[in-house]
Design a protein around this nucleic acid. Structure first.
Length: 261
DNA sequence: CCTAATGTTTGTGC
DNA sequence: AGCACAAACATTAG
């Protein structure tokens, strides 16, 4: 689930509930959730610190405090939950970490343990944690996008998902964008004119903007996401059977009629 | 039992 | 170097 729009939803949730609040305590149900620190050290570093706003870069959430920054990544199954219960929250099965803030608790939840929580004390440390990230997919301007994409030979889906080029697009979002742009996921970027790349940028931007409003890729009518979980999905545009195959090392969904090779 | 799953990293080979 | 592909990570659902 967590791609750019999901993390954007977590960011808004963080700012709505946790921003401005002091951390009383950090409670760990699962020690391995903390990656470059321990639950104890995280608690010591944050106790009596105040959460400022959270930033997002791609799929990374950066929670600022008046001390160090708490860095979240959600892997394939993570999420951020808010409980308005004052005092300790009842932790559920996959809750790994709870930040008790007095007015409620912020809960880092993850079914599998692919993501995690880091502590960064400087911008350099932050970059060491997130790795090399390209500009955020929601903020990149058209000419930069066209320049980056036209220097690529990879398939367009692989290029869109490359976090070093462009940060925030994952498997499902790339399928949604390419379906809306009517481009086959394996088409080499070398095949596109600047004009076509400009149109792809426009499609990508409007897709992300609308998904961000929902805090996820909306399974709405007229979106590929609305049929993705069906046994025999049909293209919401032309009703052709959706093809499901490997592209860029992942399971890709595309319409063979709207998105020919 | 097996397979696949929204992500990232690492290794191999062309 | 750039790219494609596979495996690994840990866990659950079907």
């Amino acid at each position: 689930m967590p791609e750019l729009p999901d993390v954007e939803g977590f960011r808004r949730k963080f700012n709505r509930h946790a921003k401005g609040q002091k951390v009383n305590r950090v409670r760990a149900a699962e020690a391995s959730a903390t990656r470059n620190t321990s639950p104890q050290a995280l608690g010591r570093a944050l106790r009596h610190r105040r959460f400022l706003g959270a930033d997002r870069h791609g799929k990374w959430l950066l929670a600022r405090t008046d001390g160090p920054t708490v860095v979240f990544h959600f892997g394939m199954t993570g999420s951020l939950a808010w409980s308005g219960e004052p005092g300790p929250v009842e932790l559920e099965r996959h809750d790994r970490l709870a930040f008790e803030l007095g007015v409620g608790s912020l809960v880092y939840r993850s079914q599998r343990k692919l993501g995690g929580v880091w502590l960064a004390r400087s911008g350099d440390e932050e970059r060491a944690i997130t790795g090399d990230l390209g500009p955020d997919a929601d903020k990149i301007d058209m000419s930069t996008f066209v320049e980056l994409m036209s220097s690529r030979k990879a398939g367009v889906k692989a290029a869109l998902m490359d976090q070093k080029m462009l940060a925030g697009i994952g498997n499902e979002l790339s399928d949604e964008v390419l379906w809306r742009a009517r481009l086959h996921p394996s088409t080499s970027c070398t095949r596109f004119s600047d004009r076509e790349l400009g149109r792809l940028h426009e499609t990508m931007t409007s897709t992300i903007r609308e998904a961000n409003r929902h805090g996820r890729i909306p399974p709405k009518r007229g979106w590929l996401e609305s049929v993705r979980d069906e046994h025999a999905p049909k293209c919401p545009r032309c009703q052709a059977p959706i093809r499901r195959g490997k592209a860029a090392g992942r399971t890709a969904y595309w319409c063979p009629r709207c998105q020919p090779a």
